[in-house]
Lab assay of single mutants.
Amino acid sequence: SEEEIREAFRVFDKDGNGYISAADLRHVMTNLGEKLTDEEVDEMIREADIDGDGQVNYEDFVQMMTA
């Protein structure tokens, strides 16, 4: 549901600035027990970053979650 997606976005957007940065993503993945290299984190950001601004905004996140 849209509310679940919004809630998930809030979990990833640690600093609440409306964007998921590589640092935000790394933090959440580490908490989930996933040890990722910087390259892996950057690749995840690139794949999710639809508009190419280097971070994942809510619209990018929705597209990723509903793809």
Score class of each variant (00 low, 15 high):
residue 5 I to R: 02
residue 12 F to Q: 02
residue 54 G to A: 05
residue 35 K to V: 09
residue 56 V to Q: 00
residue 22 A to S: 08
residue 22 A to V: 15
residue 20 I to C: 04
residue 56 V to E: 00
residue 54 G to N: 06
residue 20 I to A: 01
residue 15 D to V: 08
residue 58 Y to F: 09
residue 48 A to D: 02
residue 52 G to S: 09
residue 11 V to A: 13
residue 5 I to E: 00
residue 19 Y to C: 05
residue 67 A to P: 06
residue 32 L to A: 03
residue 49 D to C: 12
residue 12 F to T: 01
residue 29 M to R: 00
residue 55 Q to C: 10
residue 59 E to L: 08
residue 11 V to P: 05
residue 46 R to W: 04
residue 50 I to R: 12
residue 24 D to L: 05
residue 27 H to P: 03
residue 2 E to L: 14
residue 56 V to L: 09
residue 46 R to T: 05
residue 14 K to D: 05
residue 25 L to A: 15
residue 48 A to N: 06
residue 27 H to L: 12
residue 59 E to S: 06
residue 5 I to S: 01
residue 24 D to M: 04
residue 21 S to M: 07
residue 11 V to H: 10
residue 62 V to H: 02
residue 56 V to R: 01
residue 59 E to Y: 09
residue 54 G to Y: 05
residue 43 E to Q: 15
residue 11 V to G: 04
residue 55 Q to W: 14
residue 29 M to N: 02
residue 1 S to Y: 13
residue 27 H to E: 13
residue 66 T to Y: 06
residue 32 L to E: 01
residue 44 M to D: 00
residue 51 D to R: 13
residue 42 D to E: 11
residue 65 M to F: 06
residue 14 K to W: 10
residue 44 M to A: 04
residue 26 R to W: 11
residue 26 R to Y: 11
residue 58 Y to R: 01
residue 21 S to A: 09
residue 34 E to H: 15
residue 58 Y to K: 01
residue 38 D to L: 14
residue 45 I to H: 02
residue 31 N to Q: 14
residue 36 L to V: 05
residue 46 R to N: 09
residue 13 D to K: 00
residue 37 T to R: 06
residue 27 H to Q: 13
residue 66 T to E: 04
residue 7 E to C: 08
residue 30 T to H: 13
residue 8 A to D: 00
residue 41 V to D: 01
residue 25 L to V: 13
residue 58 Y to E: 05
residue 4 E to G: 08
residue 22 A to H: 07
residue 58 Y to S: 01
residue 38 D to S: 12
residue 18 G to L: 02
residue 19 Y to Q: 06
residue 65 M to A: 03
residue 1 S to E: 07
residue 40 E to P: 02
residue 18 G to A: 01
residue 65 M to R: 02
residue 66 T to D: 03
residue 47 E to S: 15
residue 61 F to V: 14
residue 38 D to K: 14
residue 18 G to P: 00
residue 64 M to F: 08
residue 40 E to S: 04
residue 29 M to H: 01
residue 2 E to A: 14
residue 38 D to R: 12
residue 3 E to V: 07
residue 12 F to A: 04
residue 53 D to F: 10
residue 60 D to Q: 15
residue 30 T to K: 15
residue 40 E to F: 07
residue 53 D to K: 13
residue 7 E to D: 08
residue 55 Q to T: 06
residue 62 V to P: 01
residue 53 D to R: 09
residue 45 I to K: 02
residue 14 K to Y: 14
residue 50 I to P: 09
residue 41 V to E: 02
residue 33 G to K: 15
residue 31 N to D: 05
residue 59 E to C: 06
residue 62 V to C: 03
residue 20 I to F: 02
residue 29 M to Y: 05
residue 14 K to C: 07
residue 15 D to S: 07
residue 8 A to W: 10
residue 45 I to G: 01
residue 32 L to F: 12
residue 10 R to M: 08
residue 4 E to W: 14
residue 18 G to K: 02
residue 16 G to C: 08
residue 39 E to H: 12
residue 12 F to D: 00
residue 7 E to M: 09
residue 30 T to A: 13
residue 41 V to N: 02
residue 7 E to P: 01
residue 66 T to F: 14
residue 51 D to T: 13
residue 24 D to I: 06
residue 51 D to I: 09
residue 25 L to H: 00
residue 3 E to F: 10
residue 39 E to D: 10
residue 59 E to D: 04
residue 40 E to Q: 14
residue 28 V to I: 11
residue 30 T to I: 12
residue 27 H to I: 09
residue 23 A to L: 09
residue 44 M to K: 04
residue 4 E to T: 10
residue 19 Y to A: 04
residue 35 K to T: 09
residue 25 L to R: 00
residue 18 G to I: 01
residue 47 E to Q: 15
residue 51 D to Q: 10
residue 8 A to C: 06
residue 28 V to W: 04
residue 25 L to C: 05
residue 39 E to C: 11
residue 35 K to L: 10
residue 56 V to T: 02
residue 16 G to N: 09
residue 2 E to S: 12
residue 21 S to W: 06
residue 11 V to Q: 14
residue 38 D to W: 11
residue 51 D to C: 11
residue 18 G to N: 03
residue 7 E to R: 07
residue 62 V to R: 03
residue 44 M to L: 10
residue 33 G to R: 14
residue 32 L to S: 03
residue 28 V to G: 02
residue 52 G to Q: 11
residue 56 V to C: 04
residue 45 I to C: 04
residue 8 A to G: 03
residue 45 I to D: 00
residue 49 D to Y: 14
residue 47 E to T: 15
residue 31 N to E: 09
residue 44 M to E: 01
residue 23 A to C: 09
residue 48 A to P: 01
residue 9 F to V: 02
residue 56 V to G: 00
residue 40 E to V: 09
residue 58 Y to G: 00
residue 7 E to F: 05
residue 67 A to Q: 12
residue 49 D to R: 14
residue 45 I to S: 03
residue 64 M to W: 07
residue 37 T to N: 05
residue 40 E to T: 06
residue 37 T to W: 07
residue 13 D to W: 02
residue 9 F to W: 05
residue 47 E to W: 15
residue 25 L to M: 04
residue 41 V to W: 08
residue 13 D to G: 01
residue 17 N to Y: 06
residue 14 K to S: 08
residue 9 F to C: 10
residue 51 D to L: 09
residue 15 D to C: 08
residue 14 K to E: 07
residue 60 D to I: 15
residue 64 M to Q: 06
residue 50 I to T: 13
residue 21 S to I: 04
residue 66 T to L: 14
residue 26 R to T: 08
residue 62 V to T: 03
residue 35 K to S: 11
residue 58 Y to V: 14
residue 63 Q to I: 09
residue 11 V to N: 07
residue 11 V to M: 11
residue 16 G to E: 04
residue 57 N to Q: 10
residue 10 R to A: 09
residue 55 Q to A: 05
residue 13 D to R: 00
residue 46 R to K: 12
residue 54 G to P: 02
residue 2 E to Y: 13
residue 16 G to Y: 04
residue 38 D to M: 14
residue 8 A to Q: 07
residue 38 D to V: 12
residue 17 N to S: 11
residue 47 E to C: 14
residue 39 E to V: 09
residue 58 Y to W: 12
residue 14 K to R: 12
residue 50 I to K: 14
residue 36 L to F: 15
residue 25 L to N: 00
residue 8 A to N: 03
residue 40 E to C: 10
residue 23 A to N: 09
residue 23 A to F: 05
residue 49 D to S: 13
residue 40 E to L: 06
residue 2 E to G: 08
residue 34 E to C: 15
residue 61 F to H: 00
